[in-house]
């Protein structure tokens, strides 16, 4: 079996992997909807979003691998498929199991809103490659946010059952919100170097945009949880190992396999 790579975890690499891994893992979760969405049209829409996220992850992982430095660099495939769980830095939110449709569209809205705000700031990154990736990704994230938020409004303001399910999803997902804006030294250094913002700076605009969506859906924003998830630091929920096993087993069993 293919062994794991040794990641050169500099603060800049860590910062970029938080973004790239969040895109990568959410894409994997969304891929689970393929063939299972409520209608054919939405099935294609979900797959489109997943593929956009894979594209963003590829660009960010490729760049992060280069920043690991001469002699220590890794390519996008090595980073995506050959890291150990502790070397993934995605938000815990995106690794939670697929859930029902209400859960999926609400999570998509929350993540797309965050990524949109993040790409907006990253478009002015001191790293020209990051700025270029952000310029392209921003357009995609805007659509992901609109498409998903429209669904949250329809379901929240829909039937008794759709409302009940959306409220339940909101309660479950809101537990993982503090982690989004829990900034640390990695983000402080990114902010100082101009690579990108500390995510804590995105908290106010994120809450304001989510408030608009929830108001339109007739849903009350839950109180902030005391619980702190820690995916951004590499310490994940019990679901992460399973999703990595599924993502990695092919590359681990057939190293370098392509098709």
């Amino acid at each position: 079996m293919q062994a794991s790579i040794e990641l050169n975890r500099t603060p800049a690499v860590h910062y970029l992997l938080r973004i790239g891994d969040t895109c990568l893992v959410l894409a994997q979760r969304l891929g689970e909807w393929c063939g299972h969405a409520p209608v054919l049209e939405e099935d294609i829409a979900m797959a489109n979003i997943a593929l956009d996220l894979v594209g963003q992850a590829r660009a960010v992982l490729t760049h992060a691998g280069q920043l690991e430095g001469a002699g220590r660099a890794h390519d996008e495939d090595q980073l995506a498929y050959l890291r150990d769980e502790r070397d993934y830095f995605n938000l815990t939110l995106v690794e939670l199991p697929r859930g029902d449709f209400a859960f999926a569209v609400l999570r998509n809205t929350m993540v797309a809103t965050l990524l949109k705000l993040l790409w907006q700031r990253l478009a002015a990154s001191s790293d020209a490659e990051v700025a270029a990736i952000a310029g392209k990704a921003l357009k995609e994230a805007r659509y992901h946010q609109q498409h998903s938020a429209d669904w949250v409004v329809r379901l929240g303001d829909g039937t008794d059952e759709s409302r009940r399910r959306t409220e339940k999803a909101l309660k479950q997902l809101w537990l993982y919100v503090p982690e989004l804006f829990d900034s640390d030294d990695v983000e402080a250094q990114a902010s100082a170097s101009g690579l990108g913002p500390a995510w804590s700076e995105l908290r106010e605009p994120w809450l304001a945009e989510m408030q608009q969506v929830l108001d339109a859906a007739g849903l009350a924003m839950p109180k902030e949880a005391a619980f702190r998830s820690t995916g951004k630091h590499g310490v994940h929920s019990e679901h992460m190992g399973y999703i990595l096993a599924e993502m990695q087993h092919l590359q681990r069993s057939f190293p370098g396999g392509v098709w």
Binding site: E41, E42, I44, A45, N48, Y143, D150
Partner: peptide
């Protein structure tokens, strides 16, 4: 929704 679905399909 029709416009968005048309875009996606």
């Amino acid at each position: 929704m029709a416009i968005q679905m048309a875009r996606d399909v």
